[in-house]
């Protein structure tokens, strides 16, 4: 419960930072803010359904995973400094098709962990492209770039969650007690991810203010 509370507190951080600097955020960072707010609401609602109503909440996270892929993916695509962006939109569409097939083969009430892993791979790949495209080859201080912190947060979360979500349904089916413990991997990654997103929002806000002051 303590970990859960910590996750909640950490998830609200970027929402506060994002709302505070909302006027300074561009399209991509606004999408990330919406995603963070949705994640926070889903977490609370999922908890309410699962722990207090004692019902399945997998359907909620099945829907959330697709929202996450589209919002985070679109944010990355808008930030990319590339001429041809259609392959990335194509990847998002393919991932959606894969998600539909995965749900159709199972049920909306069974967590679509294979689609989740696919989504995590897609996001890891997109944010790696973004990181190399926007940060590595530019001669600006990497640690002062909001895109760097945003990419880092997504890459750490998505890449490190792949092994856990890959085995998620196995744990649920074969060792539910273990599943309850293993979910801490996701919680720890949440605790790493969301402060980094908050840093990126703060950097966007501060840099915009510096530019306004200079003008």
């Amino acid at each position: 419960m303590a970990t859960l509370m910590l996750v909640m507190m950490v998830k609200i951080l970027p929402v506060i930072a994002g709302v505070y600097y909302f006027g300074h955020l561009g399209k991509s960072f606004r999408l990330t803010l919406y995603l963070t707010a949705i994640a926070f609401v889903c977490e609370i609602y999922g908890l309410y359904i699962g722990r207090y109503l004692h019902r399945h909440n997998s359907w909620l996270f099945n829907i959330y995973m697709m929202l996450e892929v589209w919002l985070a993916g679109a944010a990355a695509i808008y930030l990319m400094d590339l001429k041809k962006k259609w392959p990335f939109w194509g990847i998002l569409v393919l991932d959606t098709i894969f998600w539909i097939i995965n749900l159709a083969m199972g049920s909306i009430f069974i967590f679509a962990n294979v689609a989740m892993v696919a989504g995590l791979i897609v996001l890891t790949m997109m944010y790696l492209v973004l990181l190399f495209n926007n940060c590595v080859f530019k001669d600006r201080d990497l640690l002062r770039q909001p895109v760097f912190w945003l990419s880092l947060s997504t890459i750490i979360y998505c890449a490190c969650d792949i092994p856990y979500f890959g085995m998620h349904n196995y744990f649920i089916g074969h060792a539910p007690a273990l599943a309850a413990k293993m979910i801490r991997i996701n919680s720890i990654l949440d605790i790493i991810r969301y402060p980094l997103v908050a840093i990126s929002f703060i950097l966007v806000g501060q840099q915009k203010q510096v530019i306004l002051n200079a003008a």
């Binding site: 990181l131 990497l142 890449a159 490190c160 092994p163 856990y164 196995y170 273990l178």
Partner: peptide
């Protein structure tokens, strides 16, 4: 449990890989 161990090691390896890449980049 070997599966749990595999998941944990894979996660840590992933984290380590990202750390190495990021430190090199910085």
């Amino acid at each position: 449990n070997p599966i749990v161990l595999t998941v944990l090691v894979a996660t840590l390896m992933m984290l380590l890989l990202i750390a190495v890449v990021i430190i090199t980049m910085v």
